[in-house]
Amino acid sequence: MNTIDISGDVMTDADNTRVNEPLKTSSTATVARDVRETVGDVTVSNPRMRCKSVNVYYNEKQAIKNVSLDIGRHEVVAMIGPSGCGKSTFLRCLNRMNDTIVGCRVSGEILMDGDDINGNGIDVVPLRAQVGMVFQKPNPFPKSIYENIAFGPRIHGLAKDKTELDEVVETSLKRAGLWEEVKDRLLQPGTGLSGGQQQRLCIARTIAVNPEVILMDEPCSALDPIATAIIEELIDELRQDYSIAIVTHSMQQAARVSQRTAYFHLGDLIEVGETKQVFTNPIHQLTEDYITGRFG
């Protein structure tokens, strides 16, 4: 990630072709035999992140089997599938959160700006600043609202002085649509907010370090319907600036917020496609069974 070019328009052709090379979904020989081929086009043009043949193991157990998937710009990719199928595991690969789990191994390529994020010399610190994450249960730090937002900018040294930090906190809260609700009590503990507000606080916290990609792992599963609606709206707005990958167990939510949908089943990526197509006209039998509610 050290080679990032801010202007972004002077990269070599060699790089260009390598990244845009069509993916072979049935690539390597090391892949286990019971792997299912993915139906639909896993690639997009000009992706923000590109995963190729990702396998994840928890000790001996394989949780993700040869999954390839692109995360495009300005889009929300929804990942659905029965619980335990590996959605969270896959999502956590994208900012190497699996590093923190003992016994978890990831193989395959996950490219960001042409660099493999698992490659040598790649530090997780800037990667995670670039690929932020919002978790299932809102997890504000036991600090004030202000300190929650300021946490990222502080550790990364993003703000030169207090005014700048104030500004970052304000803009982040505004983008997360929380400013109006909390501007008078920035110094009160973040844990005192309601569930939905807490989750928006966590989104604001993520935004405060200017990520490119935001990963969300069932961000609404602990919230009531009204809070959920607010977050969904927020996600739709955030799409303007960020790529978003969201895991959800609610198909309605996937349908409402996402442009593309990926259906996982027992560690396999079964089908990927435009959200509309996946929900109205699934190709794979398993996808159809799932969205028609035959299992879940």
């Binding site: 990032i4 801010i6 600043a129 993003l158 200017n210 303007q240």
Partner: peptide, 12 residues
């Protein structure tokens, strides 16, 4: 957003 992000990464 991307430009902002790149600048951030540089600082980081």
């Amino acid at each position: 957003a991307e430009i902002r992000s790149r600048r951030t990464i540089e600082i980081v």
